[in-house]
Computed example of a mutant assay.
Amino acid sequence: MAAVLCTNGLLSKTLAVVRSMGRQGIRTVVGEKTRFHASGFSKYADKTVVYPDPVRHPEPFYEWLCETIVREKIDFLFPMDDDVMDIVVSRQDGLGKLCRILVPSPESYRIAADKSLTMRLAEGRNVPCPRTAETSFGPQVDPDELLAVTSALDYPLCIKPRVGSGSRGVRFVNDAAELIAVFQDIHLTYPNPLIQEAVSYGGKYGVCLCYDDNHAVRAAFVQREVRNFPEERGPSVVQESIYDEKMLDYTKRLMDGIPWRGVVEVDYMVDSRTGEPKLMEINPRYWASLNLALACGIDFPFMHYRLGVGADPEPMLAYKEGVFGRQLLPGDILHFLASKKRWRQNPPFFTTKLKDDVISRDDPWPAAGFLVSALRYCLDLKMWRFLITR
Rank of each mutant, 00 (worst) to 15 (best):
E240R: 15
E231F: 05
L157S: 09
H187C: 09
F137C: 05
R125N: 03
G202E: 06
P193M: 03
M255R: 11
Q239S: 13
Y211N: 03
D185K: 03
F137S: 04
D213S: 12
C208Q: 09
L194W: 00
I242M: 11
Q196E: 07
P128A: 00
G166I: 02
V226S: 02
Y243A: 11
V207A: 01
T189R: 05
N192I: 02
V217S: 10
E225Q: 08
K204G: 14
V170Y: 09
S165M: 06
F172W: 08
V237W: 14
A176K: 11
T251M: 14
I159N: 01
L194V: 09
A177G: 11
I195M: 04
N174W: 09
D256S: 10
L254K: 00
R125L: 03
V238H: 06
R233E: 07
I195E: 02
V173Y: 05
L153G: 10
G257C: 05
L179G: 08
E231K: 05
D256T: 06
V170L: 12
E225G: 07
R125S: 08
P139G: 04
F172I: 12
Q239L: 06
M247K: 05
A220N: 14
R233M: 06
L188E: 15
L209R: 15
P156R: 03
V127T: 06
A219R: 00
P259E: 04
E145R: 14
A219S: 05
A220W: 10
I186Q: 13
P191D: 02
P128I: 00
I195N: 06
A220H: 13
E240H: 09
S151H: 13
S167D: 03
I242V: 15
R171W: 08
P139W: 03
L248K: 12
G257Y: 04
D142E: 01
K160E: 13
L146F: 10
E178D: 15
A176S: 13
L254C: 07
E197M: 06
R162I: 10
P230K: 00
E134G: 02
D244Y: 08
D212H: 07
G169L: 12
V199T: 09
A220R: 15
V217E: 10
V238L: 07
Y155D: 01
A220Y: 07
V163Y: 10
S136V: 01
R125I: 05
S165H: 08
Y211K: 01
G234Y: 14
L254E: 07
T135M: 03
P139F: 06
G164S: 10
R171K: 11
I159M: 00
E231M: 03
Y190V: 07
L153M: 05
Q239M: 08
V182D: 03
S241N: 14
V127A: 10
G202T: 00
S136T: 02
L209P: 15
N126Q: 07
N228Y: 07
H215D: 08
V222C: 08
P130R: 11
L248F: 13
T135V: 00
G202I: 04
K252C: 10
Y190M: 10
K204C: 15
G164N: 13
M247S: 09
N228P: 05
V173K: 05
S241R: 11
I180R: 14
A152M: 05
E134N: 08
V237C: 15
N214F: 13
Y243R: 13
Q196R: 00
E245C: 05
A177V: 12
T135G: 04
Y201L: 08
